[in-house]
């Protein structure tokens, strides 16, 4: 039986992305490991030991582990696809794919899968590092897994849209610096939004990262500031809308075909 051409093409892009991630592991995998180790040492052990329990029976260091893993997943899935796809535009080898019979959705799926895999690899690395500082109990494995997957997909798609519009390398650095990092810090990684007064608590609910961090925290620790159905609805809505935008841009050749 001959292989489905789209499956082969999808596998080719995914494989190429994984090879790239592993080839430049000092740029793709190591930085998050170092940064998160520092977070665990400073915020978890040094500051966290003074804070003690933040919720019923939950130490501060345990509380921040889910948020830090999500922070790594978000920055890595976004950064992987934006730099890789923009690099292919910049070096013009995106034309190899655009001039091939591959449908647009295969190109998108291949790049997103590559970025999601980097997010998952980094999540595992950060999880492994966290085990040096605390013990993790997995309360809801499926919620944990589905949340990390959905989050990686949402930010891969967002990174892809960024790369499509980007004309220079600065354009793919702006969003992580001025949008992603602030939203992540304000997304309940280090604190519970219930501790905030009005109107900051309400404003925080406009931040999609809040829902992702809380769903993941629920999966790992069994606590959340947000009802699970709301968190899933937000994540799914972002995934669907961003996928539709990315696919439309790719089909129309925005920033790719003249």
């Amino acid at each position: 039986m001959s292989a489905n051409p789209n499956v082969v093409a999808f596998g080719t892009i995914t494989r190429r992305e994984v090879v790239r991630i592993l080839r430049i592991w000092m740029q793709t995998l190591l930085p998050s490991a170092i940064t998160m180790t520092l977070y665990f040492v400073i915020f978890g052990r040094m500051v966290g030991s003074r804070i003690g329990e933040i919720a019923d029976g939950i130490q501060y260091i345990d509380y921040i582990v889910p948020g830090l893993i999500m922070m790594a997943v978000i920055t890595n899935s976004y950064g992987n696809i934006s730099s890789s796809f923009f690099g292919s535009k910049f070096g013009r080898y995106v034309e190899e794919m655009l001039a091939s019979p591959m449908p647009s959705w295969v190109i998108l799926a291949g790049y997103v899968t590559g970025a999601v895999l980097r997010g998952l690899i980094v999540a595992l690395i950060v999880l492994a590092i966290s085990l040096f500082f605390t013990r993790i109990h997995l309360y809801h494995p499926w919620i944990t897994l589905s949340t990390v997957l959905l989050t990686a997909i949402v930010f891969s798609l967002a990174g892809f849209v960024n790369a499509v519009y980007a004309k220079k390398f600065d354009d793919i650095a702006l969003v992580p610096t001025f949008v992603l990092t602030p939203l992540t810090y304000l997304g309940g990684v280090f604190y519970s939004v219930n501790q905030l007064g009005s109107p900051w608590r309400e404003i925080s609910h406009a931040n999609p990262i809040l829902y992702m961090v809380n769903a993941f925290r629920y999966g790992l620790l069994g606590i959340s500031d947000i009802p699970m159905w709301t968190a899933y609805a937000v994540m799914l809505a972002f995934a669907v809308v961003l996928a539709a935008i990315a696919l439309t841009l790719l089909r129309r050749g925005v920033g790719l075909r003249s």
């Binding site: 082969v8 093409a9 080719t12 190429r16 013009r92 190899e96």
Partner: peptide, 20 residues
């Protein structure tokens, strides 16, 4: 318009992959 960091063998094999 190929990736200068890739090897010619991989560039060719990947191209074939895009064609299924």
């Amino acid at each position: 318009n190929f990736n200068m960091f890739e090897k010619p063998f991989d560039i060719c094999v990947n191209q074939a992959g895009f064609y299924g």
